[in-house]
């Protein structure tokens, strides 16, 4: 369906500005600024440090031997995550194939049929079309 893109080309330019975003979205705009992200990361690091220190202050109730080791969860969390990601990257080297590998018998290589979608650009109003006519539901 090409008419979508042709109809919306002007709408796209109009809405690509920050002031058009909803208030909720504006609250997250910091994610685009490197500086703010650094601040968040710093905050996270401080939080981690605090949590680690708390382990020495608060006695955790434990069931499993070793669980009571100070910072047990911190270490496990960090190492497990790192190891999972690193070994997954290795796994990818073995099992990654072209997207066409299983096609045409798998959905990987195909586009989602437009009939099941309603592509809209930001700021564009949904067209009041009779969806029964455009969507061939095998019904009616």
């Amino acid at each position: 369906m090409t008419e979508h893109t042709s109809n919306n080309s002007d709408a796209k330019h109009a809405t690509n500005k920050e002031q058009d975003y909803t208030p909720l979205a504006k609250r997250f705009l910091w994610a685009d600024s490197k500086h703010s992200v650094e601040k968040v990361i710093l905050g996270l690091s401080i939080l981690c440090g605090l949590l680690f220190l708390l382990d020495f202050i608060i006695h955790r109730h434990t069931y499993v031997p070793g669980e009571g080791f100070p910072g047990f969860y911190a270490i496990v969390g960090f190492l497990a995550f790192t190891l999972i990601v690193l070994s997954a990257s290795q796994l990818r080297k073995i099992i990654l194939r072209n997207e066409q590998y299983y096609s045409p018998h798998a959905v990987d290589a195909e586009h989602y049929p437009e009939a099941g979608l309603e592509r809209l650009e930001h700021g564009e109003k949904a067209k009041a079309v009779d969806r029964d006519a455009t969507k061939t539901g095998g019904s009616e």
């Binding site: 969860y73 969390g77 960090f78 190492l79 995550f81």
Partner: peptide
């Protein structure tokens, strides 16, 4: 307290690992 602390440690440090 132990539960919350343990879980927060696990998740925050995992997040740190992601960063």
């Amino acid at each position: 307290t132990s539960h919350v602390l343990a879980q927060m440690q696990l998740l925050c440090f995992a997040l740190l690992a992601f960063v």
